[in-house]
Design a protein around this nucleic acid. Sequence first.
RNA 1: GGGGCUGUAGCUCAGCUGGUUAGAGUGCCGGUCUGUCACACCGGAGGUCGCGGGUUCGAGCCCCGUCAGCCCCGCCA
Length: 596
Amino acid sequence: MRGGGSIDSVSGTSRRTHRCGELRAQHVGQRVRLGGWVHRRRDLGGIVFIDLRDRAGIVQIAVGPGAPEEVRRVAGQVTSETVVEVEGDVTARPASMKNPDLATGDVEVQATTLTVVGPAATPAIPVARGKGEELAAEELRLKYRHLDLRRPEMQANLILRHRLAQRARRTLSDLGFLEIETPVLTKPTPEGARDYLVPSRVHPGEFYALPQSPQLYKQLLMVAGLDRYFQIARCFRDEDLRNDRQPEFTQIDLEASFVGVEDVIGYVEAVLVALWDEAGQAVARPFPRIAWRDAMERYGTDKPDLRYDFPIADWTAQVKPLGVPFFQSALGNGARVRGLAVKGGGALSRKDVDQLADAAKQLGGAGLAWVKRQGEQVSGSVAKYFTATALGALGVGDGDAGLMTVGLDRVTSPVMDRVRQEVIHRLGGAPKAAHAFCWVVDFPLFEPDPETGRPVFAHHPFTAPHPDDVARLDSDPLGCRALHYDAVYNGSELGSGSIRITDPAVQRRVFAHLGMSPAEAEARFGFLLSGLQAGAPPHGGFAIGFDRVVMALAGAESMRDVIAFPKTTAARALFEGAPAPANPADLAALHIEVKR
RNA sequence: GGGGCUGUAGCUCAGCUGGUUAGAGUGCCGGUCUGUCACACCGGAGGUCGCGGGUUCGAGCCCCGUCAGCCCCGCCA
C-alpha cells in the first residue's frame, strides 16, 4: 500500500487510485483517479465518451453537460493515444446502456477533472482497431513497437509470459532447485551454432562469445555440488531465423545431480504441467513416450504431432507386386514405399493433392502418388494399379485417400511428415486430444554427416551414451543410442535434455570421435575435463524453450508476438535500428578493422 | 546460401489487356449532434505507386537489378 487517500489495491499510486480496467459495480459511488491512454473518443456534441485504456483494460469516461467547463473543453479536443489523468465518480450505467463486451461495462466514470499529461502525435499505426480490421504490416508493428505493444492482445501475451515465468520459478524452487546466474560473456564454442562474438578491448584479437546455452556452467555447478540448478536463461545463436526461431531466446534451463532419465523427465513434466495449469489448461502426467526410431517410422519426424493418430506405414511389400512404374524404377538400395491412409481423404480436392505433391517435391522427393477410393471406384494418379481390395488391405477405406512416395528414408521421412501435416491442416478434422505431449527417447548418439557419411554427434558432445551401447562406441557408432530426450507438444519441440557424461575417459573418447586431438580437447574443454576429474556426481538436465511454451499457450502464430522487442527474420531490430556500424574510434579501441 | 509471397494515401486494401485526372474504407483536419461504445451525418486535405535501370508513343501494371518484411529449404552440436 503506497500513497494515501482512498487507495484500495496495489494498483494505486500517489497519482491514481485504480487501474482503468479494474472498475466494477462494486466501485459505484467511489471517487477515483485514473491515468491512461485515450483509446477512442465518441463526441456526441453535448456529451463526450472517452474509452480510457491501461494495461488492465478499458473503462468509459463520460463527460456530460453537467461536467465542469474545463473538463468539457479538454474532452472535446483530446486525440487518440493521448495520456490523460481523470478524477471522477464511478456510476452505474442504466441497464440499456451497459456494455456486455467490456469487463467494466456496468459502470462509467463521470469526470470532474480531466488533464492531458502526455499529448500524443497521431499514431503511425492504429492501436484501437475496428472489428475485422487488419493488423498493420509486421514491419511497421516492429518499427513502432511502443504502439504495437499498447494493443491489449500484445499486453495479454506479455502478461501471460510473466505469469509463466513466475510459475516456473516457483515450481522449480519448490522442487529444491536453486536459481543461479551464469555469464553472458563466455568462451566461443567450436561446434554447434555460430556464436555471437564480443571483442575484448583489453586483449587485442581475443573475443568473448555470447552463450548458445549455459550448458557447461550448469554441469560445473553440479560438479561443484550445488545439486539442483535452474535459470531462466537468455541464449544466443547466430543462425537463420524462422517464425519460431529468434537469435536471442529464453530457456528454462535446469540440471540436477544423482539423477537418471526418469528423474529429469519427472521434473520437466512437473514444470510443464504447472505452466499449462497457469494458463488454465489441464494436462495429465505422465506424458507418453515414443522411441526416436518409431517416431521417424510412424511420423517421419522427431517431433510428431500426436493430436492426430494416422501414422505413416511401410507399403513396400503390398505395393511392389502391383507393378506401378512410378515405384519400380525407384525401389532397391534400401528404398521403400511409404504411405498414409487418410480417413475422409476423398474430401481432398485435386488442387489440394497437387499442392501436397508440390510441397513434397520441394523437399526433394520423387513425388507423391495418390489414390482415392469411392466404394469400389478407385481414382487418382496411380489408380489403375490399385483395386478397392488392395487399398482396403492398406487401411484405405470407402471415402478415404492413400498418399504415397518412394525412396530412401532420408528423403521419404521429411516428405511424408510434411504431407501428413498438410493433410491435417487441409482436412481440419477434430484432433483426438487438444494437448498432445510426448517424450521422444532413445535418440541416436551419432548421425551420418550428410556430405561425408561419417558419424557426427547428433546432440552436444556431453550427452552420455546409453549404458547398453557404450561397448559399441568405437565399433558401431551409428548404432549407439544416447541418454537424450526431447519434450514434444503438438508437433513442436519444446526442449531437450540428456544425462551427461561424467566419466572423463568417456568424455575424451567422445571428443576424439569429433576429430579433436587430446591437446585440442584440453584447450577447448579443459575446464570441463578437469571438473569431471575433480569428482563429478551423475547428473543430467533439460532446457525448455520458454518462448515456444508462451507461443503455444498464447496461441501466437509467431515468436515475435510473445517477445517484447524481437528481431526480424534478417536479425534486425527495426525500432532501434540494430545492428549498426560502429564508429571508427570504438573499433580502434577494440583492435578491429572492418573489411567491406 | 537457395526458393516463394508481398511492397500503391498515416493505416488496411482495390486498381481489368500497358492508355488520358490512381480509387475505397479507416485515420487525420473542419462542422452538426445529450447516451454513445467501430457513434451517426456533412465537408476537406492527404500519393517519390519501395528504390534504380530498361522496353514502349505511353509503365502502378511488362523486363532486369536492388532493398525491406514475411514464409519455406539449407543451417540451428
